[in-house]
């Protein structure tokens, strides 16, 4: 697959003034998708998201056309998200893919949480996250592509199965599964659109404009809105600023206030904390899963081996949450 050539051929359809694509470069790529940055010769900065040829689609990841449809559905609601320019067709020669505008800003959580450049926007960022989440969650479901539905008990059971398959014997996880199982909120009568991975790393922030883009919609589903509110509070993405639970930059009340003011149905702190704890437990199990790809020889890199040693950070966080609940 010659991605630069295919993008150049596509250029005139992406912008009337364009004749070719320039500066095509791969930004990142996992097994399930690739991200490429490029420019058109009329100066338009763009991003291509595509499924690699022969790439395995992880069970949870959405079709890219669904991701594009979600971006298009939330943008008119005031959710900062990249504008989709083109969903690729077979004739484009890019496989399953879409093109969106490239935003400028920072996604590295460590910089957003700690750099002086972001000091001015940090105090309002948690509230803004609450407002944006309310806009996402209240998106009308009519017209959306099919999405998985999940709830707290189902997520717990899913991750417990993965944990059992790992063969690990980790008493903190055993305790956390039972503790959370007893407290799992019942499924919502009307599940809502949930981003599924709303945290530092997937939030593009500008030092001047604040939150300019919510990225990586591949885990979007229908479920409990408190899932998104809890996930951004998981200690693993506070980058040292553990006293500011919302992403290392804000307080719970800022997030919940922004959420309520923007029309989100009120969520109690207790419900948020349930999902935060489940988030830590999920991240811990994910670390074990990533280690498993090393252990089974799928990816023998030191990086994959070492991520298993991050499971213990989630154990510390879970012990703290259980102590606070005891």
């Amino acid at each position: 697959m010659d991605v630069p050539a295919a993008l150049s051929a596509l250029a005139p359809r992406l912008s009337h003034a364009a004749t070719t694509a320039t500066g095509v470069r791969r930004l990142s790529g996992g097994a399930s998708q690739e991200t490429w940055a490029f420019d058109l010769d009329d100066g338009t900065p763009l991003i291509l998201r595509r499924r690699p040829s022969g790439g395995s689609m992880s069970a949870a990841a959405l079709p890219l056309s669904t991701e594009a449809a979600l971006l298009a559905a939330v943008a008119p609601r005031g959710v900062p998200a990249p504008e989709v320019i083109h969903v690729c067709e077979p004739g484009d020669g890019l496989g399953e893919a879409y093109v969106m505008r490239r935003l400028s800003g920072e996604t590295l959580g460590k910089r957003i949480v700690r750099d002086e450049a972001f000091a001015a926007i940090r105090p309002g960022l948690a509230r803004r996250c609450g407002e944006v989440l309310a806009a996402i969650h209240t998106t009308p479901l009519e017209g959306l592509p099919p999405l998985n539905v999940s709830d707290a008990a189902g997520e717990l059971a899913r991750y417990e199965t993965v944990y059992r398959q790992s063969g690990a014997r980790r008493p903190v996880f055993e305790a956390a599964f039972r503790w959370l199982e007893e407290r799992a909120p019942p499924p919502l009568e009307r599940p809502m659109l949930v981003h599924g991975d709303f945290r530092n790393g997937n939030l593009m922030v500008s030092p001047q404009a604040g939150l300019v883009g919510v990225l990586d919609w591949e885990l979007a589903h229908l479920g409990d809105p408190a899932e998104d509110l809890g996930w951004i509070c998981v200690n693993s993405w506070r980058f040292g600023e553990w006293r500011r639970p919302v992403g290392g930059f804000g307080d719970y009340q800022d997030l919940l206030d922004g959420y309520a003011i923007a029309g989100g149905e009120p969520v109690s702190l207790g419900r948020l904390l349930f999902w935060q704890a489940l988030g830590s437990l999920k991240w811990g199990v994910m670390c074990l899963m990533m280690y498993a790809s090393f252990a089974t020889g799928v990816d023998s890199s030191i990086e994959r081996a070492m991520i298993g040693r991050r499971a213990s950070e989630t154990e510390i966080d879970l012990v703290l949450l259980m102590e606070q609940a005891a």
């Binding site: 553990w242 991050r310 213990s312 950070e313 703290l320």
Partner: peptide, 12 residues
């Protein structure tokens, strides 16, 4: 052993 600089230790 795994990650002595992790801030969760301070939180706990």
């Amino acid at each position: 052993i795994d990650q002595p600089s992790y801030w969760g230790v301070a939180a706990l």
